[in-house]
Amino acid sequence: MKSNRLLMMLLVSLIIIGVVILINVISFSNIEEIVINQLKENQLTETGFAAKQIEDHILQVRDELVTLSKFPDIETLDINKCSGDMTIVHESIEGKISNILRVDKDGTVIECSSPIYSNYVGINIKNKEYFKAPKETNEPFIDNSIRQGFNRQIIVSAPLFETTEYTPYPNFLGQFKGVLLSIVEVNTLYDLYIHPIADPEKAFFLLINLKTEETTLKSNNIDEYSAIKNDVLSEKNLNIITDFNGFGETIITSSDIILGSETWRLIVLTPLKNVGKEISSVQNRHLFILGFVILVIIGGFIFLITVYQSREEVQSKLDKAQVTLEKLGIN
């Protein structure tokens, strides 16, 4: 009887351990897919957040220029020394603008706020779209087609009108007095918003103009958009895993940036081979937990068996004592 009970306990313990192992093996076989899907969803969220930050940054620069253009004393701003002191400007606005250039009605740059752009002073830009557009439409304008050497620049411009007092809207009826410009370095946008989500050692990115299909900014180790566009689907908000351009299975996510009449797209690509450590880390952690659970179960059953054997031994001694007492006629 005693051996049968021990056998039953061992059998039950083996069944429980087997069930735990089976469940974890099934889970382990799916864990890579689960981790990859989680990485994909995280990348999509981060891509959308970065795109929204870039959009907000540029639109805020535009709105700040419009706000400045409504002040009647804009012509008295002491920015003609190109000293880089934006204190007087940031006392009136939140401060995404890092530089200002003022252009007169004939298209000549006459003032700047930063020594970095002092070489612009004296240049005539009357034929540039970022001067003509605000002059002809009375609306602010964003031009992302500017290339300064190897660097990309975004020039935001807003028209200036003659005004004698602050108005809630630009004084379109006043005489055209020129434009205000602010230059946004694309590399600055990369440092602020793209670099935190696109680790150069693991991921690639593209910032493109959807209308012109021109690449505004990209990782060094990836081709221009025009060369790989057939490998990157044109649907909105990519969220796929596909075999991409020799990189193997790759997570591709995207988010659009709406800037007035233009639409840009931020695309982030992460080859799965570059995130193998993250997947292996989760798998190893899973195996460690499985081993720990099995050891706990085995230890628990050893403890129960030990307790059971001890109780059987005590019971056996009590039975013998009872028999002895009966023989002595004490019971």
Rank of each mutant, 00 (worst) to 15 (best):
K2L: 09
L6R: 15
M9I: 01
S13W: 00
I17F: 02
L22T: 09
I23E: 10
I23N: 13
I23D: 11
F28S: 14
F28T: 05
I34Y: 11
H57W: 11
L59P: 04
L68D: 04
T76P: 13
D78N: 10
N80E: 15
D85P: 06
M86L: 03
M86Y: 00
H90D: 08
H90Y: 05
G95F: 00
I97S: 13
S98V: 01
I100G: 01
G107K: 13
N119R: 09
I123F: 04
P140T: 00
D143C: 07
I146M: 03
R147P: 03
F150P: 08
Q153N: 08
Y166M: 10
F172W: 05
F176A: 03
L180M: 05
N187L: 02
N187V: 01
T188L: 10
L189R: 00
L192F: 04
H195M: 11
P200E: 14
K202G: 07
F204D: 14
L206Y: 05
L206V: 03
L207Y: 02
N209D: 15
T212I: 13
K218N: 12
N221K: 09
S234T: 13
E235M: 12
N239K: 14
I240K: 10
G248E: 12
I252P: 01
D256S: 15
I267P: 05
V268F: 08
L269V: 09
P271Q: 06
P271W: 02
N274H: 14
I279N: 12
S281G: 14
H286E: 10
F288P: 02
V296L: 07
V296P: 04
G300M: 01
Y308S: 11
S310V: 05
V314F: 04
Q315G: 11
T324Y: 08
K327F: 00
L328H: 12
I330K: 15
